[in-house]
């Protein structure tokens, strides 16, 4: 019987993780621009070591001026 308790907890936890991932994605704006993402991944990056900061993937911080 106790195995069902375990199963229940595991299954809901896994589902909750997917839900959290989904909400995180939406919040990060991954679904905002559906046109650019499929194009962007096709570009060859011939450039040597590109300068990038963490800000590239995150939304710009909210207006603070």
């Amino acid at each position: 019987m106790s195995v069902i308790f375990l199963l229940l907890i595991v299954s809901i936890t896994v589902a909750a993780l997917f839900l959290a991932a989904f909400i995180w994605n939406v919040k990060n704006g991954q679904y905002d621009d559906e046109a650019a993402a499929p194009l962007r991944m096709l570009f060859d990056d011939t450039a040597p070591a590109e300068k990038q900061t963490k800000d590239i993937n995150n939304n710009p911080p909210s207006k603070s001026l």
Partner: peptide, 18 residues
């Protein structure tokens, strides 16, 4: 998205195509 090659002081550029 390669603007930094033209001006090194551009740290990042990201296009919203839509």
């Amino acid at each position: 998205e390669h603007l930094h090659k033209l001006n090194a002081d551009i740290i990042s550029s990201r296009v919203d195509f839509g």
